[in-house]
């Protein structure tokens, strides 16, 4: 198995890269978003979309990725990109939070997670289900049929105590093991 991590010029990409390799042992390559359209994407068995600055509408090239129908896991902007591809909406939060932790409802537990959060999925796309929440903010989403999932928070942050377990669960749920 081989994975591709697409870096939206973010500053947490390699934290995620190390965490994925450490947990799965799967060879994971990193390319910049700008290089995606000229890259042979079909050689990989799954994709990870990094966090990054700005709104999903600034990243139109991701539509190529969704046509491949292979596992996709998105973090922060990455999750918002999945939501936007399926016609969900992403807009400004009334109170943005960066570099802090929140106690969110995750499956049946409460988890402390790190957030870097200016925008949120204010309307979740029909094909997606919300699997974690903080008040009215969707904190994790999963596609109802396809192996796509994402988290709004940062499992790779040093501030997320159970980050390894959460990432492992999420990757397992879309068939990346």
């Amino acid at each position: 198995m081989a994975l591709l991590l697409i870096d939206n010029n973010d500053s947490f990409t390699y934290n995620l890269h190390h965490q994925i390799i450490r947990l799965t042992g799967i060879e994971t390559s990193v390319i910049f978003y700008d290089a995606m359209k000229d890259h042979n994407l079909s050689q990989y068995d799954g994709y990870i979309i990094s966090p990054g600055p700005g709104h999903p509408s600034e990243y139109p090239d991701y539509s190529i990725l969704f046509k491949l129908e292979k596992p996709i896991f998105g973090v922060c902007l990455g999750m918002q990109l999945i939501n936007s591809y399926y016609d969900g909406e992403v807009s400004r939060l009334s109170e943005c939070r960066h570099g802090v932790t929140l106690n969110i409802e995750y499956m049946d537990d409460i988890e402390e997670v790190a957030v870097y959060n200016s925008l949120y999925c204010n309307k979740v796309a029909d094909g997606l289900e919300v699997i974690a929440n903080y008040k009215n903010i969707p904190m994790a989403l999963r596609h109802k049929q396809l192996p796509y999932a994402g988290v709004q928070f940062h499992s790779e942050s040093f501030m997320t105590p159970n980050g390894d377990k959460i990432l492992n669960d999420m990757l397992n749920s879309i068939g990346i093991v």
Partner: peptide
């Protein structure tokens, strides 16, 4: 201070990222 702590925490995550590119997996 929540504000000053958040400022530092953000940069700690960023520095972890920046050195990870040249460091062994699991060592940071």
């Amino acid at each position: 201070s929540r504000k000053e702590t958040a400022e530092l925490s953000m940069i700690v995550d960023l520095i972890r990222n920046d050195i990870s590119e040249s460091c062994e997996v699991g060592s940071v």
